[in-house]
Amino acid sequence: MNTPYILASWSIVFGVLALYGLATVLRGRQLARRVPASERRWVDSQDVGGGGDG
C-alpha cells in the first residue's frame, strides 16, 4: 500500500538527477564549441592528439 509513494520518490530522485545531468552535459557541449581546448584543462591528451594537460 506504500508502494506508490516509494516508487514515486525513487523515480523522482533518479529522474530529476538524470535530467539535470543531461541538461548540464548538453550545455557543456554547447559552450565547449566556443572555447578552444587549450582553455579546457580537463581535456585528455588522448582526445586532443597532443596538447592539454589532462
Binding site: 552535459v25 565547449a32 566556443r34 581546448a37 580537463w42 585528455d44 582526445d47 586532443v48 592539454g52
Partner: peptide, 26 residues
C-alpha cells in the same frame, strides 16, 4: 551562452579539437 547553438562566427568542434564537452576520462 544561450545564443550559442548555430550562431555564426563560432568555430566548429573539429577545429578546436578536444572532447565534445565537459567530459574527461575521470
Amino acid at each position: 551562452a544561450s545564443g550559442a547553438p548555430g550562431s555564426p562566427g563560432l568555430a566548429n568542434p573539429a577545429e578546436h579539437g578536444g572532447g565534445p564537452g565537459t567530459g574527461s576520462r575521470t
